[in-house]
Amino acid sequence: MPTATRLNLSAGIASVVTALLLVALKLWALGETQSLSVAASLADSALDLMMSLGALAAILYAARPPDDDHAFGHTAAEDLAALGQAVFILASAGVIAFAAIGRLTAADPVPLAAEGRGIVAMTLSIILTLALVLWQRGVAARTGNRVVRADSLHYLGDLLPNLGAILALWASAQFGLVRLDAAIALAAACMLAVGAAGIGKDAWDALMDRAAAPEVIARIETLARTQPGIHGFHDLKTRRSGSRLFINLHVELDGAQSLDAAHAIGAALKHAILAEFPGTDIIIHFDPVRDSGDHR
């Protein structure tokens, strides 16, 4: 199994296990405190668990090798899952914002109880969540997996509501204040919405076969232009599917040289691209330089 796949699977499994622990911990905290902020956090963790299970399923499906019906693999499942997560996160942000505004404007907020136990439970939740987010961020940075990145954003968004719950419990115990968490929840909702929009756009672009980022294309062009034996290139096409980059490129070679020599030049360019962008799917076409059109 490739290293990237193992890392993505480890992030998915860690997400599911963490979500299960958070649900159990917050169920206990809710029973102790009867806190609405803890209840909201519990509901969010329950939804996290469902999303984490879906993300893990998408990672497992995307890891399947190409077959007769999917010659380019199954990595588009990552984009579909990331797009679904983005929509879900946007909806969650709207619900959180609506609830926060309702709590801020309520005339008679519900009092809290057993605040100390609730603070301990929510602190443990933050530690577990932060450890998961750090691991997911590291995996996403190494593999480029959008599903892991979207899941990481979702859990990162949970940190502020958890902090808000702690502050609300503390403020309730010390000063009788119960509205503090609503303001923090509203800020968290805005952060979630902005992050989800970015992930959704990236996933949509990949599903629509949008070209790779300009800096990626520029680097590929530089590698092709400076590769010994290549006199020019044209028809460079790129797209992304999940965490994989696809490149299609025509290179212009001396038509009088042997096929072995031409193949060696193409293989050297392919290795140079793979060194810069590991895991890339590359197709290189050979054209004799005397018959080529646009030179670069």
Rank of each mutant, 00 (worst) to 15 (best):
Thr3Trp: 12
Gly12Thr: 09
Ile13Ser: 05
Ser15Trp: 08
Thr18Ile: 10
Ala19Ser: 14
Thr33Met: 09
Ser35Leu: 06
Ser35His: 06
Ser35Cys: 10
Asp44Val: 11
Ser45His: 11
Leu49Arg: 00
Ser52Val: 08
Ala62Val: 03
Ala63Ile: 07
Pro65Trp: 11
Pro66Gly: 00
Asp69Gly: 05
Ala76Cys: 09
Leu83Gln: 00
Leu83Pro: 00
Gln85Trp: 03
Ala86Lys: 00
Ala91Pro: 05
Ser92Lys: 14
Ser92Val: 11
Ile96Asp: 10
Ile96Gln: 12
Ile96Gly: 02
Ala99His: 11
Ala100Pro: 08
Ile101Asp: 04
Ile101Asn: 03
Gly102Glu: 13
Gly102Phe: 10
Arg103Leu: 14
Leu104His: 08
Asp108Pro: 02
Val110Arg: 14
Ala114Lys: 09
Glu115Asn: 15
Gly118Arg: 14
Ile119Phe: 13
Val120Phe: 09
Thr123Gln: 04
Thr123Tyr: 04
Leu124Ile: 13
Thr129Asn: 04
Ala131Trp: 02
Leu134Ile: 15
Leu134Thr: 08
Gly138His: 13
Val139His: 14
Arg149Phe: 02
His154Ser: 08
Tyr155Phe: 15
Gly157Met: 06
Leu159His: 10
Leu160Tyr: 15
Pro161Ser: 07
Asn162Thr: 02
Leu163His: 14
Ile166Asn: 01
Leu167Arg: 11
Ala168Lys: 02
Leu169Glu: 00
Ala171Thr: 13
Ser172Cys: 13
Ser172Ala: 15
Ala182Val: 12
Ala185Lys: 05
Ala187Leu: 14
Ala187Thr: 09
Leu192Met: 13
Ala203Val: 05
Asp205His: 07
Ala206Ile: 03
Leu207His: 15
Leu207Arg: 12
Ala211Phe: 12
Ala213Lys: 07
Pro214Gln: 10
Ile217Met: 12
Glu221Ile: 02
Thr222Ile: 01
Gln227Met: 15
Pro228Gln: 09
Gly229Trp: 01
His231Phe: 05
Gly232Asn: 09
Lys237Ile: 07
Arg239Tyr: 08
Arg240Gln: 07
Gly242Leu: 04
Arg244Met: 03
Leu249Asn: 00
Val251Ser: 01
Val251Pro: 03
Gly255Phe: 10
Ala256Pro: 01
Gln257Thr: 09
Ser258Ala: 08
Leu259Cys: 03
Ala264Asn: 01
Ala272Cys: 01
Leu274Phe: 06
Ala275Gln: 03
Gly279Met: 05
Asp281Ala: 07
Asp281Glu: 12
Ile284His: 02
Ile284Val: 11
Phe286Glu: 13
Pro288Asp: 00
Pro288Thr: 02
Val289Pro: 00
Asp291Phe: 10
Gly293Ser: 03
Arg296Trp: 05
